Amino acid sequence: MKTFIDLFCGAGGISCGLEMAGFNCLLGIDFDKSSLETFQFNHPNSKAILGDLREITVKTIQTAISNQNIDLICGGPPCQGFSTIGANDKKDHRNFLFFEFLRMVEAFQPNFILMENVTGLLARRNESTLALIINSFNQLGYTVDVRVLSAHHYGVPQARRRTILLGNRFGVSNIYPEKKFKDSEDDSNSLPLPHTVGWAFNNLLEFEGKTFNHNLETAQIKNELERQRIHYIPEGKGIRYERDQLAYLPPHLWFDVDWKKIREERFRETKLKRLDRHQYSGTINTNKTTYYHPTEDRYLTPREAAAIQSFPPNYIFLGTLSQQWRQIGNAVPPLLAASVGEEILKLDQLKNKLKKANFIPDLNTVRSQAFSYK
């Protein structure tokens, strides 16, 4: 069985998915205590190291895993500075944790690398950073490819896009998973429709008669005005434009705003957004107030959010409610990671039959092909 270590494991989304694909997780590292406790609880046969990777030595890792061979190194170095939502500060010190990832790759020389990041990494303003990352791996002998994958194409009931960088030491092009689910009824191919929120709730909430991380009391809406408003919102709807307010809310619950004076005459983000059981969700983030239950006047529970992220129902999150939400929202969806892991294992089987690839890819080609979902 192929082995791996997860350098920024968080609660273990990538590790969970890779194990679904058939890998064996030797070690997870993270600086966040509650996240690592969740990782360790759900990966009892793996080692765990709490700490900043910049302060963790190669010898410490070797000792922890008893000098076992490492076939793959994976992780998502903190990427706040690359985010299309955040401040996009290329000088953010967290971005340079990539060099710690590189340090471990150089030390252990795994046959494969898997690094995930936000789509903002491929923005033109981050072109120099992307070039540095690719060239750094090239210099260590890795053939690298970069793609943006959308989670709903791989069984995750959620529209979540992640940049997936793959590398191998065999000089061949990396293999990415083909789409397993189409986008909608309008998509002409013969693939099945994406999994939905209803599918997640029907399949990923209960395990052997138990439902973990599902305290309904913590999902109640404390603000009375907010609770009254959500009561009137139909499934799958929300308030962004004045026409939404007119359609769904009685006058006494209208927002105290002048729609003509709001930028673009709309809220920046949809308010009171109910999920739709018959559709996949928007991106689950670290805040429980982003979405509301499809039919009940409340927020989601951590279990419901984890199900939409495609975590198995027996994957238990530890820590406070806010810590659980942070762990879930920051995770890579396991089913997405599993699909990537399957292709890495396929490449390992085919490596001697594939023709050699261009060792140093053209950056413009990388960026132009990255968003191809075919």
Rank of each mutant, 00 (worst) to 15 (best):
68 Q>D: 02
159 A>H: 09
72 L>I: 11
185 E>L: 14
203 N>H: 14
367 R>Y: 07
216 L>V: 09
148 V>D: 04
272 L>G: 10
354 L>K: 08
86 G>H: 07
287 N>R: 13
166 L>P: 13
178 E>I: 10
150 S>T: 13
176 Y>H: 11
97 L>Y: 03
220 Q>C: 01
156 V>I: 07
61 I>L: 01
188 S>A: 14
74 C>D: 05
23 F>K: 12
111 N>L: 04
360 I>R: 14
174 N>C: 15
362 D>L: 10
155 G>I: 09
190 S>C: 13
231 H>L: 14
128 S>F: 00
127 E>T: 04
276 D>C: 14
21 A>Q: 01
54 R>I: 00
165 L>K: 05
86 G>D: 06
43 H>R: 04
358 N>M: 08
129 T>I: 09
189 N>W: 11
317 F>I: 05
84 T>L: 13
65 I>R: 04
167 G>F: 05
54 R>G: 13
115 M>K: 08
96 F>V: 01
62 Q>T: 05
173 S>T: 10
90 K>Y: 12
96 F>H: 06
365 T>Y: 09
286 T>S: 11
316 I>E: 04
153 H>C: 07
292 Y>G: 00
30 D>H: 00
21 A>S: 10
161 R>K: 15
310 S>D: 05
85 I>C: 11
7 L>A: 08
304 E>W: 06
39 F>C: 04
36 L>H: 03
87 A>I: 12
354 L>H: 01
